[in-house]
Design a protein around this nucleic acid. Structure first.
Length: 754
DNA sequence: GGGGGCTATGGGGGG
DNA sequence: CATAGCCCCC
């Protein structure tokens, strides 16, 4: 037996050490900002490994993949080797990895597509339009967030319809049919073999809960130790998954959660502080440790943070303190315009760099909304200060990148309707809007993906040939892809054969050249992925297929990318700054309607969350904190006037320099009031209510011309004709428009009436 | 079916 | 300001 060194324990204070060495049973660590939380987590994992536990038996759920990567590197240095085999990453990426192996057990292909926000939105929009509803009343964003929140709370479409609170809420907001959209959305995703971000959690839960082939015990016994970072930002569903993994007969319940209720800033995506309270109720004998000493910031910053958070009721009792007495108070700067704000921040950065010999990378500008980055960019560039913006439009969201990726997605999973719609006519091959609409309708009627509809839909000869040509190309890509080709060779082949590369190269404008460059950068990235010789769990090189590549990039964010050692000022949203620290921090745009956001003004709970967000913002600073606001700023091309943020007044005066407590009155430019909702409904099919109990599905070959049949969705109809591809034309008596539908017998659920 | 120009309209944070 | 969606023309 090798001698194990525990010398790292000497680097910890008493509470930290207890949090690291208490390995058995449920542990809760409440960790104030700058209290050495990351250190505790890494040391704890190292300690678990030193106690003889294999790295792959440890599940560490972090907030970003970058945090997981850094943690693994630090653990590697502490314990020698093996740290790369720890299951560390975000909920989404780790569950995607598991589902890639297990999805077939719950009705999904293992090669499932991950739908991003744009895919989700466009699908929801398609459904709304398909139902003849108005996209103004049924704002796709609003609908998406209702669906997302339903999924995060384990509410199925059926349960949604049966839930009086949800239905009343939707009725009050004039969106009574959200439950139907939700239902269609779920079905369409399944047909497309696609999971959205919420599904990565929801399907993981289903896998464990439904427990096909006793799969649950496999993961329960694998993950002997579970750690969850930023627990305050997990939602109900994430917590339920954790419980599936940890709570069972004979479990040692070795789970450690680390969080800070004061830094809970993600309730908009379903995170709930209740989880912290619930944890103590769900687990017996939870051992709680509170890390209250702040090692990061000056007393001015810590006291200001305490002062701010004191305005919030209801929090876990704790007192964050520091023995770091700083010289510089918090600076509050008022600017007349947003542009002046940008200039003053840039000037002050120059001044601070000289006076305190700061490097660019020790400085960050934090804002409430990504749209605010522009003025700072402008002025930093003017002053020749290197910077980097995180968040906003990422590389993978550029059009030319998404186009090629859509081809790759379709090659891996041809049922991916969103990918198909995107590129079926790009580059142009004469397949127009009408054809695509018909294909969408046909696929919907037959409850299949568009890809499955292509060989069976009846269109003009021309349209049919064009579609067949496209399908043939994709089929040839698929055939090539199944021959064990790596992702790079495949992607290059597709970029050439699809005509994308050629099309982009024919554009000699600056933007065109840029696009070619971006596409090449994407191909380089794929090459890098292929050549990376990182080892997987079983010491085998990780698989380099297109499918694995797509899974990797679907969950990548700006934050995960290496900044390298470049010396740049960081610009990012406050949300993105969670967990980070800088010597000098500028929190900008501190105005009513912006921070706190106008969306939050009417709800006390949301104001509290904005306040926690401000708390997170200021506690990123180690030495210097500057808070700025502007009397006027451009927003959507309009000049707007805002009062200074209430949070500025909440800063304790003794920790602040040069505060100017003037409440500017708006002179003109009152906020534009959005108009009322004007529903504009066309006469549409109202689908008949069909009693599905006692429904007898007929075999495809039993259906004959002239028969009267019952369809699950469209009700009674008469079979007009059946063609050689087994597509039947059926006239449905209860439909108002497009009563004659073409239905694929292979998939149709029809009952013979007479 | 495709392209170009014009208008109306969003309104946050992110995996 | 940015862009989706519409209208009109080829």
């Amino acid at each position: 037996m090798q001698e194990v060194s525990h010398s790292y324990l000497e680097e910890l204070n008493d509470t930290q050490r207890k949090a690291v060495t208490t390995l058995d049973g449920p542990v809760m660590v409440i960790a104030g900002p700058g209290s050495g939380k990351t250190r505790v987590l890494t040391f704890r994992i190292a300690h678990i490994m030193n106690s003889g536990v294999a790295p792959w038996q440890i599940l560490a759920l972090t907030f970003t993949n970058k945090a997981a990567k850094e943690m693994k590197e630090r653990i590697e240095r502490l314990v020698g080797s093996g740290a790369n085999k720890i299951w560390a990453g975000t909920f989404h990426s780790l569950f995607a990895r598991i589902l890639r192996v297990e999805a077939h057990r719950i009705g999904y292909p293992n090669d499932f597509t991950i739908y991003d926000t744009d895919d989700t939105k466009s699908l929801i929009k398609e459904i709304i339009k398909g139902m003849g509803l108005d996209t103004k009343a049924y704002n796709p964003n609003a609908v998406k967030s209702r669906i997302s929140s339903a999924k995060s709370n384990l509410i199925t479409p059926k349960a949604y319809e049966a839930n009086a609170d949800l239905m009343n809420y939707d009725r009050m907001n004039r969106r009574p049919k959200i439950f139907q959209i939700y239902d269609k959305y779920v079905k369409k995703c399944l047909r497309a073999g696609a999971m959205d971000f919420d599904d990565l959690l929801l399907q993981m839960f289903k896998l464990l809960y439904q427990n096909p082939d006793d799969i649950k015990s496999k993961y329960q016994s694998q993950f002997q130790y579970i750690l969850v970072d930023e627990f305050q930002d997990t939602n109900f569903l994430q917590y339920e998954i954790m419980k599936q993994l940890v709570k069972y007969d004979g479990s040692k319940e070795n789970i450690c959660i680390v969080g800070d209720d004061a830094q809970s800033i993600y309730s908009f995506r379903g995170a709930t502080i209740e989880n912290i309270l619930q944890f103590e109720a769900d687990f017996m004998n939870v051992q709680t440790f509170k890390l209250e000493q702040n090692y990061r910031s000056t007393h001015h910053i810590v006291e200001a943070a305490n002062g701010i958070i004191g305005y919030n009721k209801r929090q876990i009792e704790k007192k964050i303190w520091t023995d770091y007495i700083g010289e510089n108070k918090i600076k509050v700067i008022k600017a007349l315009t947003d542009s002046e704000e940008g200039k003053r921040v840039a000037d002050l950065i120059i001044e601070q760099k000289n006076r305190f010999s700061l490097e660019n990378k020790e400085i960050a500008i934090l804002y409430r909304t990504n749209a605010q980055s522009r003025v700072f960019e402008e002025h930093l560039r003017r002053q020749n200060i290197q910077y980097r913006i995180y968040g906003g439009l990422s590389f993978y969201q550029r059009k030319e990148i998404k186009d090629l990726i859509a081809y790759l997605r379709l090659t891996v999973n041809p049922k991916d309707d969103e990918a198909l719609k995107r590129i079926v006519n790009y580059p142009r091959r004469g397949i127009g809007k009408t054809t695509i609409e018909k294909l969408v309708q046909f696929a919907d009627d037959n409850e299949v993906s568009m890809w499955q509809g292509i060989p069976n839909i009846e269109l003009s000869k021309r349209a049919q040939n064009l579609l067949a040509g496209f399908a043939g190309m994709i089929a040839s890509f698929r055939k090539k892809n199944q021959g064990g080709i790596n992702a790079y060779d495949m992607a290059l082949f597709i970029a050439r054969k699809s005509g994308i590369l050629e099309l982009l190269k024919s554009d000699n404008s600056i933007e065109g050249l840029n696009r070619v460059e971006n596409l090449n950068a994407l191909l380089d990235g794929i090459k890098e992925f292929v050549e990376d010789d990182e080892l997987g769990d079983g010491e085998n090189p990780l698989e380099k297929s297109l499918s694995v590549y797509l899974q990797n990039i679907a969950l990548i964010t700006d934050m995960d990318e290496d900044k390298g050692n470049t010396d740049v000022v960081t610009l990012m949203s406050v949300h993105a700054a969670k967990g980070l620290e800088y010597k000098s921090v500028f929190v900008v745009g501190m105005e009513e309607n912006l921070f706190p956001s106008f969306m939050a003004l009417s709800t006390p709970n949301q104001i509290d969350e904005e306040r926690r967000l401000f708390y997170v913002a200021i506690t990123r600073a180690k030495d210097l904190l500057t808070v700025t606001y502007a009397n006027s700023r451009y927003h959507f091309g309009q000049m707007r006037f805002n009062d200074p943020s209430r949070f500025i007044e909440e800063l304790p005066p003794e920790n602040v320099d040069s505060i100017i407590p003037i409440k500017a009155k708006p002179e003109f430019g009152e906020p534009r009031v959005l108009g009322g909702i004007k529903p504009r409904l066309k006469q549409r099919n109202v689908l008949p209510k069909i009693d599905v109990s006692g429904f007898v599905v007929a075999a495809p070959n039993e259906i004959k011309e002239g028969m009267k049949v019952l369809h699950m969705k469209f009700g009674e109809g008469k079979v007009v004709s059946i063609d050689e591809r087994q597509v039947a034309s059926i006239h449905f008596t209860q439909l108002v428009e497009n009563a004659e539908k073409r239905i694929m017998l292979q998939y149709a659920k029809l009952q013979i009436l007479e």
